[in-house]
Design a protein around this nucleic acid. Structure first.
Length: 578
DNA sequence: GCCGTTTTCGGCCCGACTGTTTTCAGTCG
């Protein structure tokens, strides 16, 4: 967790420096933040092993930043950062989280109007105080207000991808206590919702007091809301609230069912219990005052005439009726994915070489990996042109023949595919010539510009791309960024119809801030018979693990193995491409 | 502030879009 804390601080320093119009240094801090965010080894351990010198070995970390990491490890603070914040005492991170606001504008608003936080900003905008300022017009006023409203709608919720590492760490520590007999996360985390309000953990223990003592003194606890024998509530760093409940072993299953929710799912299951003359609550299933079952979820569901329902499906969207009929779809499993086809390498935006990415994919047990680097329209990502794609093909061929000569069966079977993530331009054409596209194993197309088009035009734009006989996959099809940007205006039904006709595959992007397609669209796609692929959009080998969140989203959308093309073997996968 | 088959200084961070500025600055990917 300390790596992520430092990453956040370095990002923030980068913003402050940008505000002060310092050249290049913001980029250096940004880079350090990026690297730390995905670094496998804890910086504390690196420091313990080799001091500042070892820290300097981390790419993007030089002497200065290494010393700052050391300072943070020793004191929990970075003086340089404190100084920057004191100099311009505003909630910069909050203010620039408003779409369209950046460090420069934040500085002007602070200097001219004394705006320090979102509240000040909202007040000033509503009083039309910013329009008279140089560089701020009516549209800016409107955009800022919209941005603030967007943030407000999503306040207090965290991305599942940000919460999960914290949850895993806490559960890992509690599991190691010999007093803990059973433990599981419940609530929206267990249902793998894309955003999370707070974390609920359930446990069974013979010594609740000891477990609670341990819980409230975990590292990273900033506040103890309450501490009791059966329930304690804490706030962790980054304002994440965590509840721990100790329940009795005989009620563990019903408690888990009750606290996993969703509320709507529980209302319906309780009604079903009532219809059968039973009562269902967090302590068990009761007939009169006699408890029938409660130890496991499976027997709880069975007692009210249902088969066990995967947590991701528990939203009362029809799953209960299917469970009653024994007709629940067999949704895709977390182990079903055989390869990842949306990955970037150091040929442009990524951090790792094709070889490193391939080795990481092999470690995950994959059979294949697709490299799909950005193409030339995206200059910042150093997008590849036709000639560079040909060169990249040579490298991939070389790596593949090297894998084939290896003795281990699994490795010899492994294959790297060459794709590309081309850009769908304003008119629906793409930025790479057809002859070059034909030479690739598959082609992903995505929108990375002009996102504010009218609904009809945007839909037409995507449809034209899907009709291109070389384009196989549409990446992040709706363009949303959770809590940051709405999806673009599209007629999704029309897109599904065209995808089906042109045999174009829609991506489920696993990045925690995207999850695009989202669950409800996945279900629609499945019902329309449109094939999907779960990809990570990795820019670093460690991102490959994010596949978990894409699979979770697919499960929430009831997708089965047959709906997801990269649950298939390489031979079968290749048949899906045009 | 980092980095180095161009090694201890000089380069890195580009181009489109937006809003508003009549010639460009800030934001975003």
């Amino acid at each position: 967790m300390i790596n992520q804390e430092l990453a956040k601080i370095f990002y923030s320093i980068s913003s402050y420096l940008e505000m002060e119009e310092v050249a290049f240094r913001p980029y250096a801090y940004q880079k350090a933040g990026l690297v730390l965010e995905v670094l496998e080894e804890n910086v504390e351990e690196i420091y313990k092993r080799g001091g500042v010198k070892a820290l300097e070995k981390i790419p993007g970390v030089g002497k200065n930043i290494a010393l700052k990491i050391e300072e943070y490890i020793k004191t929990g603070k970075i003086k340089y950062y404190e100084k920057l914040r004191k100099k311009t005492p505003i909630d910069l991170e909050d203010i620039i989280s408003v779409e369209g606001m950046g460090p420069r504008k934040a500085k002007i608003l602070y200097q001219k109007l004394g705006i320090k936080n979102l509240k000040d900003l909202e007040k000033a905008v509503k009083a039309h105080k910013i329009t008279p300022l140089f560089g701020f017009g009516e549209k800016t006023e409107k955009n800022i207000l919209e941005g603030i409203n967007f943030l407000k709608r999503n306040k207090g919720r965290f991305l599942l991808g940000d919460i999960m590492p914290v949850v895993k760490e806490i559960i890992g520590k509690l599991e190691n206590l010999k007093e803990v007999r059973k433990i599981s996360v419940a609530g929206s985390v267990r249902r793998m919702k894309e955003t999370i309000g707070d974390v609920d953990i359930l446990t069974v223990s013979r010594n609740p007091t000891k477990v609670m003592d341990f819980f409230v003194s975990l590292p990273g606890v900033v506040k103890v809301w309450s501490k009791g024998g059966t329930r304690s509530s804490i706030r962790m760093k980054d304002d994440i609230d965590v509840d721990l409940r100790v329940v009795s072993e005989k009620s563990y299953g019903s408690a888990l069912q009750y606290f996993t929710g969703s509320k709507e799912h529980n209302i319906t299951t309780r009604r079903i219990a009532m219809d059968r003359g039973l009562k269902l609550n967090e302590y068990g299933v009761f007939k009169g005052s006699k408890m029938i079952v409660g130890k496991t979820e499976k027997e709880v569901y069975k007692a009210i005439g249902l088969v066990w329902i995967p947590p991701e499906m528990r939203e009362d969207e029809g799953e209960i009726e299917l469970a009653r009929q024994g007709k629940l779809p067999k949704i895709i499993d977390y182990n079903d994915i055989k390869g990842d086809l949306h990955c970037h390498s150091d040929w442009n935006g990524g951090d790792n070489s094709i070889k490193e990415m391939a080795e990481a994919a092999q470690e995950m047990g994959y059979d294949y990996l697709g490299i799909s680097d950005h193409t030339k329209f995206l200059r910042i990502e150093n997008g590849l042109n036709e000639k560079q794609l040909t060169q990249q093909r040579k490298e991939i061929d070389k790596l593949n023949s090297r894998f084939h000569s290896l003795s281990s069966n699994k490795q010899a079977k492994f294959r790297i595919l060459q794709g590309a993530e081309v850009n769908i331009l304003k008119d629906g054409s793409v930025d790479i010539k057809d002859e070059a596209l034909k030479k690739l194993d598959y082609v992903i197309a995505g929108i990375h510009s002009n996102m504010k088009m009218e609904k009809e035009k945007m839909t037409e734009r995507i449809i034209r791309a899907m009709r291109n006989p070389n384009i196989d996959i549409i990446s992040h099809p709706t363009g949303r960024l959770i809590q940051r940007r709405d999806e673009y205006l599209i007629d999704f039904d029309k897109i599904l119809k065209e995808a089906k006709e042109t045999k174009t595959i829609l991506e489920i992007n696993s990045f925690p801030g995207r999850l695009d397609l989202k669950d409800t669209y996945i279900r629609k796609a499945k019902e329309a018979g449109v094939k999907m692929i779960i990809n990570t959009d990795s820019h670093h080998k460690n991102h490959l693990r994010l596949i978990e969140f894409g699979i979770a989203q697919a499960r929430r959308g009831w997708a089965e193995k047959k709906d997801i093309i990269n649950s298939q073997s390489l031979d079968k996968l290749l048949k899906f491409f045009k």
